[in-house]
């Protein structure tokens, strides 16, 4: 696997270096086994990132892609933090 640039928290600093293999590796580090459902959510997050739209838990509720309960179930231990890391995009800065 090629090497990628990470910040001190383990987030990719350059989204263009991301691919599914890297996403899988980060997921494994966080004890998550990726399923099609996980990838659907990752795609949604990446879409928001490309459009430069801020991510929030309220946004997840309104996303039409996934509800909050399932989001927590798929990405335990802080879902937005973990899922954005897998998606290769920056950690959301919002408090909500």
């Amino acid at each position: 696997m090629e090497s990628v640039d990470l910040n001190e928290e383990g987030y990719l600093t350059n989204f263009s270096q991301w691919n599914k293999e890297i996403g899988n590796a980060i997921a494994n580090d966080n004890e998550i086994t990726m399923t099609d459902r996980h990838w659907e959510v990752v795609e949604y997050l990446q879409g928001k990132h490309v459009k430069e739209e801020a991510l929030s838990i309220r946004g997840i509720k309104k996303s039409g892609v996934i509800n909050i309960k399932e989001f927590y179930a798929l990405f335990p231990g802080g879902p937005l933090k973990v899922s954005t890391k897998i998606a290769g995009i920056p950690k959301p800065k919002s408090c909500i």
């Binding site: 927590y72 231990g77 802080g78 909500i96």
Partner: peptide
Amino acid sequence: FIMANGARMEG
């Protein structure tokens, strides 16, 4: 509410 939600967001 923000502190409780913020806690959950940090696991």
